[in-house]
Simulated scan of single mutants.
Amino acid sequence: MKLYIKPGACSLAPHIALCEAGYDVETIAVDLAAKTLPDGSSYLDVNPRGQVPALALKSGRILTEAAVILQYIADQNPGAHLLPGYGTEDRYFTLAWLNWVSTELHKRFGPLFTPGTSEEAKQAARDGLMQQFAKLEARLVESNYLAQTGYSIADMYCFVVLGWAQHVGLDLSGFPRVLSYQARIAERPAVQQALREEGLL
């Protein structure tokens, strides 16, 4: 499989998942501003939406959207236990957390990374994120990971998004369980591998 990425972006989550699942993956860094690939060709020819991640499947089709790619990777190697099995209640509770990360964390960072966003809109985004971090802190009182079944694709995505806080000046020191959670995930060999491969270590 071939994964189109921007180092440190949400594409890092499926990169981690591929490492956790034991796949050899070719990563291709995309210049998102220019929408170009390293060879100068247009990334829009690969993914007309122009965003990362995009996963090139063996069939030649291109799968997009981080949350969906994560589910696909987990289902290709059930033995890696990245997502509970089809039809189980635990699967849907895990997917609920995955979607929470996508909608309540990831999307709230958007105004903070978008040039031209008003200070009022940025402050609203910061306030909203701090509220969500408080919810995550409360969750981590109950469980070491988002899902009761343990480490999953939801945690991979959450780990990546939490890493953006330092880049936009959000202080997580008031959330000790969140910081411990970040550190615990960062120590995983597959996470270390993905970070190294993206030049982030």
Rank of each mutant, 00 (worst) to 15 (best):
Y92W: 15
G163C: 09
L98M: 04
S11L: 08
C19F: 00
V168H: 12
I5C: 06
V168A: 13
H167E: 09
P189Y: 09
F175R: 05
T36G: 08
G116K: 11
Q148Y: 12
Y92K: 07
D39Y: 11
D171C: 01
D90K: 14
A80G: 08
L170P: 06
Y157C: 05
K135H: 12
L112V: 00
A124D: 11
I62P: 06
Y86K: 08
L83H: 08
G174F: 04
D127R: 13
K35I: 11
T114D: 01
L112C: 07
P84I: 01
Q71Y: 02
G60L: 06
F175L: 00
E119K: 13
K6S: 14
T114Y: 10
R177W: 09
R108N: 15
R177P: 10
Q51L: 15
G85T: 12
D24Y: 02
N99W: 03
I16L: 05
L44W: 03
E142Q: 15
I185W: 09
K135D: 03
L57F: 05
L3F: 08
L32Y: 00
Q123I: 00
N47D: 05
S42N: 11
M130Q: 15
Y86M: 10
R126P: 10
Y86S: 08
Y157D: 07
Y23A: 13
L83T: 06
E197G: 02
I16F: 09
L82C: 00
G128F: 01
A29C: 06
A147K: 01
E187D: 13
F159C: 00
T88K: 03
A17T: 02
L98W: 06
F113L: 13
N99A: 06
D39S: 12
L57T: 05
L129S: 05
L112F: 11
T36P: 01
A190R: 00
A134T: 13
G128A: 08
R196K: 15
Q71F: 11
